[in-house]
Design a protein around this nucleic acid. Sequence first.
DNA 1: CGACTCAATCTGGTATTACCAAAATGGAAC
DNA 2: GTTCCATTTTGGTAATACCAGATTGAGTCG
Lengths: 230, 230
Amino acid sequence: MQGQEILPAIAAHLLDSARANGGKAPSERDLAEYFSVSRGQVREALAILESMQVIERRAKSGIYVNTDKSGFEAMAFFARAGIPLENRQIYEAVEVRKIHEIKAAELAAVRATDEDFERLQDVLERSEQRIAAGEGIDALDQEFHLQIVRATQNTLFLSICTSFYELGRQRLEVYFRDPERNRKSHEEHKQIYEALVKRDAALTSALMVSHLRGVMSYWTELLEPHAPGS
Amino acid sequence: MQGQEILPAIAAHLLDSARANGGKAPSERDLAEYFSVSRGQVREALAILESMQVIERRAKSGIYVNTDKSGFEAMAFFARAGIPLENRQIYEAVEVRKIHEIKAAELAAVRATDEDFERLQDVLERSEQRIAAGEGIDALDQEFHLQIVRATQNTLFLSICTSFYELGRQRLEVYFRDPERNRKSHEEHKQIYEALVKRDAALTSALMVSHLRGVMSYWTELLEPHAPGS
DNA sequence: CGACTCAATCTGGTATTACCAAAATGGAAC
DNA sequence: GTTCCATTTTGGTAATACCAGATTGAGTCG
């Protein structure tokens, strides 16, 4: 635990401590000692966590962890840090991600440039190679979907969707262990690409809907115990 | 500049310095002296800005500002800090916000609870009072729209949309200086509310589309010089 | 026993000082 | 003009000290 990112470690420790202590986290000095770093380092990490609304620092009182807060920034950070999310958060993220990707497909069909098409085709070719070699296309799947978002020419849109992908990266790897899923996913990607080239927004969008239905059901199936929304 | 948030000030100063200096920002020591704070304070602010990808800190080299980076977190922060955005960023934000709100209206029609309806009605009543008193409903407008998002029962969705509102708050105030706009906006809000109560998702969504067309055109008109996406 | 009081303690907020080592710099040597 | 090396600059990190409000707990009073 040296010279490296202590932020994730501190975040995880704060969450644990707070859970066992009614929202109250250890003091800065305790944290510094626990992680064998200076108080300054701890304060830098806490400043970031506070900016993400993960914690609240009350002067002369202590550090309090915002439970249940599911801010976008915080979720993206947790995902990146490998801190597990609650089922409800995953449900919500899946839903919001679907909304984004479907709309992105629609917009991309209208706005995609020649370079966008080239990049998509490149991803498809590399996917083909990996499938032929019996390897998973999890990274390529991400590239394909994000490239479509990029084709909307809206960088803010891309920024948000990129964060969503970080949310589900780990599960994606598991998903693409199954060769059949790889093949099916790739076929659907090709169909979506064809619809994009035709600039058929409605068709692209519809294909994306059904494509995501398949992929996303994998997530929600894993969470079955916890009933949706209600 | 004491005891208070120096983060916005430092952010603004970094952006200025970098613009005039090819991406390179002053050193931590210079910043500390410039703002009359300790280096520790500067480092806390820089840590936050780095976590938002606004800057990059290269060890033993310097602080570099990521120009053109339009990450979601950074934009929300800039808006909150009162740092002006570029036209392109505003365009993108308006587009993404529209996508969210339209979909939110659709989902809310299906999922809104009795409490949601009560809160919406409350907002409408208060709006009525303010309009009768000849006051602007800018804050209520925000409440209304966010309450609809809240009615989707998706807290992540709400978190994202809340950030979007921060993006346009200042312009909203100006917009609602016009009594006619207040009246028209309120009328449309009432129509949307009626559609929601009927749980008519398609109608709610359609009404939101036309409502936003009116409101949003105000933004884009202000930016005319920069042509839209294509 | 309970409620109140007040001093000791804890805590975040801030500043100062000091080192380290790698990067950047600038001038000397070729 | 190029190469090379010593000096300076810079971010990264630690240790220490104070402040003042919040918290706590012991002691006191009713």
